[in-house]
Write a protein that binds this DNA or RNA. Structure first.
Lengths: 177, 177
DNA sequence: AACCAATGATTGATTAGTAAAACAGGGGCA
DNA sequence: TGCCCCTGTTTTACTAATCAATCATTGGTT
């Protein structure tokens, strides 16, 4: 009940929007070799005006740079930030989709919402976790298989025999969406 | 690269702030039996003015109700929403802290940032995952133990022999916080 | 040279969350 | 009765992100 943990929600290195501007530049550079304000706006499906303002702030923070012809690229700092967030998304997506078996669409949405919020510590540990899970280790394989069966036996969470006996969180999560 | 998944960031049933107002009311009712605007403001460490405005919106949405004496309580809907988010936090916290071994403080922060963002689908599956992991099943136990060893062998991610050979995400995550 | 399209920036407006300060009502007490 | 404190609301202001509309610059075409 730390009275102020909840306020840290906005205390992030970068906002969701900012992160996606960075990643859009990165993606555009890879895909088409250049990135202008207009390209970023199109990629993010926002107006040029909005992109212009957000990118201005990112330039002021030293994350984005601009050449004489208004072509954008990421600074070293901006690049490492973008990479780190991109990595977190990939890790989260893999965990949600391939371990928990969240539906692909929902997994993508969840990963995207959360990618810039989780700590690097959690991201790295989750990566280690995934690496071990898919390392081929026989205990990992056995576990994955056993979890699969367990999960399938519990499709309807209201009818789940396990839940009735020892539900960790008294079934509150069983409510819908 | 779905061009608009990223925009769903704000498309949530409730905002981070709203969720914590609800959970504060719930907590206050449990702890001291009543909750007024001032109590919520104190609990959340914001001004009464801010709490008043946010709570007004929550009343309009039918999530919070008020009796003749300005005492607040949650509507049925508000309560189930608060419970659901609270459950997600507990599930996330347990996973981060007890499975991945994220430091307790960081785990709390990460869980709090994300609790209202992850889908119920992901939350339920993560609960199922945790239940199996800690069910006493021998394969689950063996896996947990084996992961523990694996993780310890990989403390310095830059020196990790596994990473050098087959790092899933080309080491980008190894960057600092 | 004149025109038009594309690009980027700016301005005005909106929404959500916040703070600070002023304001309004109630209760208790001297 | 008058004063003060507590409570809750309202107002003003600020930040971040957005849209819509407009403006300025540049470049290419005719």
């Amino acid at each position: 009940m730390n009275t102020s943990v909840w306020k840290e929600f906005d205390q992030n290195v970068i906002s969701h929007s900012g992160a996606h501007h960075l990643m859009a530049i990165d993606g555009l550079l890879r895909k088409q070799g250049y990135a202008r304000v207009t390209d970023v706006a199109k990629a993010l499906n926002i107006t040029r005006g909005s992109a212009s303002i957000t990118l201005k702030a990112l330039k002021e923070r030293g994350l984005v740079e601009e050449d004489e012809n208004k072509f954008l690229h990421l600074s070293k700092l901006g690049n490492s930030l973008a990479q780190r967030i991109e990595s977190k998304r990939i890790i989260l997506l893999k965990f949600l989709r391939d371990v928990l078996h969240v539906s692909p669409e929902q997994a993508e949405i969840d990963a995207c919402k959360v990618e810039h919020l989780i700590s690097t510590e959690a991201g790295e540990l989750m990566l280690t976790f995934l690496k071990f899970l898919f390392s081929g280790d026989e205990r990992a394989n056995a576990f994955l298989k056993a979890f699969q069966n367990y999960k399938n036996a519990c499709v309807d969470i209201n009818q789940c025999p396990v839940c009735d006996v020892e539900c960790l969180f008294s079934g509150e999560v069983a409510g819908k969406g």
